[in-house]
Structures are given as C-alpha cells and as structure tokens.
C-alpha cells in the first residue's frame, strides 16, 4: 500500500526544551497508527506537526506525497503562505482532546462551517452532508442543539463529524477520550473503530491500551521525544523489546 504520511527526522524545541529529537515515521494509507507514551513524550506535538499547527525546526512532513507547510526549491524549504497551508489542512482532519467545538454555533453549523467557508460548498449541500455525518455518529437528533447542551462524549462525536465534513484523506486524533468521563469513552471509541473498519487512515494519540490492541495496525511507543519502538500491537504491547516500553506498559495496564 502507498505511504500516506511520511515524517523524516523531525526536530522541535520549545525554548530550551527539545520535545522532538528526530522522529522518523511512515504511515501507510488505510492503516490505523496508535501512538502511546508517557505525558511529555512529544506525541501530541508530533501529531500537531503533521497538519502544521506546530512548525518543525528541522526535518519535514509530507502527507499523500505533498510536503506540509513548505515548498522545496532546490536544497531549501520555503515557508508556504498561510493561504496554502490552510488549503493543505482541509485534507487533514484533526480532533482535539477538548473538542474545541464553536460554542456560539449549533451542532450543524459547526459541521457546515469548514465545507462552506474553506471548500466553498453550497450551503444546502453542506447541510445535507452534515446531517448525514451526524447520523453516522449517532447524533442526528442533536443537529440544532448548542454544544454546551451535549455531554462530553456527544461533543467529541460532533467534533469527529466536523473533521469528516472536509472528507479528509487523513484523520488525526489527539487524545480524543482523555477529557471524557469514563462512561462516555466507549461511545467515542465506537465511532473511531467504525472509521477504522471503513479504511480511513488515522493516527491516534491515546492512553487507551485496549483500544490500541484492538484497532491499531501499528503501535508506536514514544518517550523523551523519540520513537522507542514500533510494530504490530501484538508485538509492542505483548512482547515489547525495549525496557522503556515494558516499564510504561506495566504502569498503565
């Protein structure tokens, strides 16, 4: 299968703190990659570099063969104007830990916003698509509610529908269930599992080991800004080769 995401020697520092110390990772189209690791290991930062919410200091990221955030001219990477970056982002869905729904817009307006304003879709068509997506995440009856009127799990499902509305080639999830009450985690994971079954390319940063075991094609374990090991879940989760991985798993399992 073709490579969807190619990350090459990505470095990133916040001030004196080096968060990513040279990351190489490639994700094939149609696969689910789950990134695990202790907090502060750089996994969220890595995810955010993929749609250029975080600029990298060195290295490069490409999605579906297109360099993200830069244009290569000879041996140099030229920063793209914001307009171009925004266009690239419309092909990459991003789901945040804290949902970040727009609280002053109804659920359906949240979903319709990007297709209408970024993709210039006609409003009626976008609304029809949005209602279909809301049905898919089980929230057809909440289309006209405001986000605050929904539970955390429902809000996150709306956020997933909002990301899907752009028909992205790639979906990125940044700890999608970490802000949820325990009894609401399942409904969100169900939706993600469903997307996985349909062959959506996804990278999921999470702490849900059971979910990783069940859904992931590849599990990546990160610590201290490096990828410690990666492989199929059976290997990384059940027979980790690295001591760091074993130590982490023994704490969370």
């Amino acid at each position: 299968m073709s490579v969807m995401v190619d990350i090459r020697s990505v470095h990133k520092s916040f001030g004196p703190l080096e968060v990513l110390k040279g990351i190489d990772l490639s994700v094939r189209a149609g696969e689910v990659t789950v990134v695990l690791g202790p907090s502060g290991s750089g996994k969220s930062t890595l995810l955010r570099t993929i749609n250029h919410l975080e600029k990298v200091d060195r290295g490069a990221v490409s999605v579906d063969g297109t360099l993200i955030g830069y244009r290569r001219v000879g041996d140099r990477l030229h920063e793209l104007p914001e307009r171009e970056v925004l266009k690239q982002r419309t092909r990459i869905g991003f789901v945040f830990q804290n949902f970040h729904l727009f609280p002053h817009l109804t659920v359906v307006e949240n979903v319709v916003e990007a297709p209408v304003s970024a993709l210039k879709r006609p409003r009626e068509q976008a609304v029809r698509d949005a209602r279909r997506l809301l049905e898919r995440v089980g929230l057809a009856d909440k289309a006209d509610a405001y986000p605050k009127q929904l539970s955390g799990g429902q809000q996150q499902r709306v956020a997933i529908a909002r990301a899907l509305a752009l028909e992205p080639k790639l979906l990125l999830f940044d700890e999608p269930t970490s802000a949820l009450d325990p009894e609401l985690v399942g409904e969100v994971l169900d939706v993600i599992r469903d997307l996985a079954r349909q062959g959506t390319t996804m990278i999921v940063v999470t702490h849900e080991i059971g979910f990783a075991r069940e859904v992931a094609d590849t599990v990546v374990f990160m610590a201290d800004g490096r990828i410690v090991e990666q492989g199929p879940p059976g290997q990384v989760l059940d027979a980790p080769r690295e001591e760091r991985t074993r130590a982490f798993l023994s704490k969370v399992l």
Binding site: N51, L53, E82, R83, L86, K87, R89, T90, I92, F94, F96, N98, H100, L101, F102, E113, A114, S117, A118, R162, A163, L166
Partner: peptide, 23 residues
C-alpha cells in the same frame, strides 16, 4: 476567547478573516 477556538478554526482551514469574524 479560548485559544483552542482559533486552533480548531485553523485546523479546519478557515481563513484569517473568517476566523476573526465568524469564530
């Protein structure tokens, strides 16, 4: 306004103008 609102709008590819006026 929560900083995450701008990030969410950026992640959705909304233009600077649209982020400002709509979000």
């Amino acid at each position: 306004v929560d900083r995450g609102q701008v990030e969410a709008a950026q992640a959705l590819g909304l233009s600077r103008w649209r982020r400002w006026w709509r979000i």
